[in-house]
Design a binder for these strands. Structure first.
Lengths: 173, 173
DNA sequence: TATCTTTGCAAGTGATTACTCACTTTTTAA
DNA sequence: TTAAAAAGTGAGTAATCACTTGCAAAGATA
């Protein structure tokens, strides 16, 4: 990975996240990265290939974060870890998650690769805690995370600390 | 409002919702509507004007739905009405809401015109019910609605009925 | 019926799109 | 040291973009 290649990925991630993938031309990416437009197509097959590279880079960074949640034993610890995810979105990961959430709406079909493993972890935790419908509870947790992350990425409400508190209280965490 | 004008609005709404506003050209809208491309610019100032017309049309339809929620007296009735909104997205309104939710991510700044009145209604209801932090509870309700609507529009989980049930139980509704 | 307005279409416009190509510069390695 | 490979550039390409224009058909009003 050369220095200019990283510049391209960095600039593209920021622009795609802020303006939208289709709204940003490869010309704009190149100028933001301080690079000739042709170089983008030397390193990536096409514009979509650039997007895929951005996705994979972010996935790899998110992998370790996701993995650490499975390790825990106490089901409440697990739920705490899952629910805390939207409150701890790293400054550096902000653009990545914003792009991912935006892309969901123009994809032809929903990608369950991220949510499916998390749903299972949550369902197991609720089962261990004796909830009557762990499946529905897990689904609700995923929905909550979606809403929380959206608020954090888009609206940035000032009282998120209080929201977190009342939410944790509801689940007795 | 002429017949072809309605065709344009209908086709544009569907395409914008499914593929994204920037990804759909006026040419595609015209062909989907069975109309010459020039006619779009006869009826609407430009592509953005077409989008604004779609927005306003949907707003007018949503107005009555939103208005009926303020009328109720019992705070639990109000919360029931608010929380039930994502579960009752009309088949005809599906494209509209999908477009609205998608557009949020490429707007320069978040539009609070929709959420602000709903937050106040929810906060008042929670206050009347004696909740300790009505503001945080209202924020959480808005976040929940966002997540629920996203699930309904994008993932369409099979166990939404059970999710609704366990959610209403949490709020004792 | 005659005239004016609205509705509609086909064929344009320049600008921008993703992408290619011929070429030079830099890096790698034997 | 030298030759091959990789990195990088800048000027192209055809296609598509949002939008305009000139003119015909249809409706409304008198």
């Amino acid at each position: 990975m050369t220095e200019k290649q990283e510049k391209i990925l960095e600039a593209a991630l920021k622009l795609f996240a802020e303006k939208g993938y289709t709204a940003v031309s490869t010309n704009k990416v190149a100028r933001a990265a301080g690079v000739s437009e042709g170089l983008i197509f030397r390193h990536f097959a096409n514009k979509e290939g650039l997007l895929e590279a951005i996705k994979q880079q972010g996935m790899e960074r998110a992998q370790s974060l996701l993995g650490s949640m499975v390790m825990r034993e106490d089901p409440k610890d697990i739920l705490r870890g899952i629910l805390d995810f939207p409150f701890n979105i790293d400054k550096e990961e902000y653009h990545y998650w914003r792009l991912m959430y935006a892309l969901k709406w123009q994809a032809d079909e929903y990608d369950h690769s991220m949510s499916h493993p998390m749903r299972k972890i949550a369902a197991d935790a609720f089962k261990n805690l004796g909830y009557s419908d762990p499946g529905a509870e897990a689904e609700l947790i995923l929905i909550l995370i979606d809403g929380l992350a959206t608020a954090e990425l888009l609206r940035k409400p000032e009282n998120m600390k209080a929201v977190r508190q009342s939410l944790f209280k509801k689940y007795d965490l």
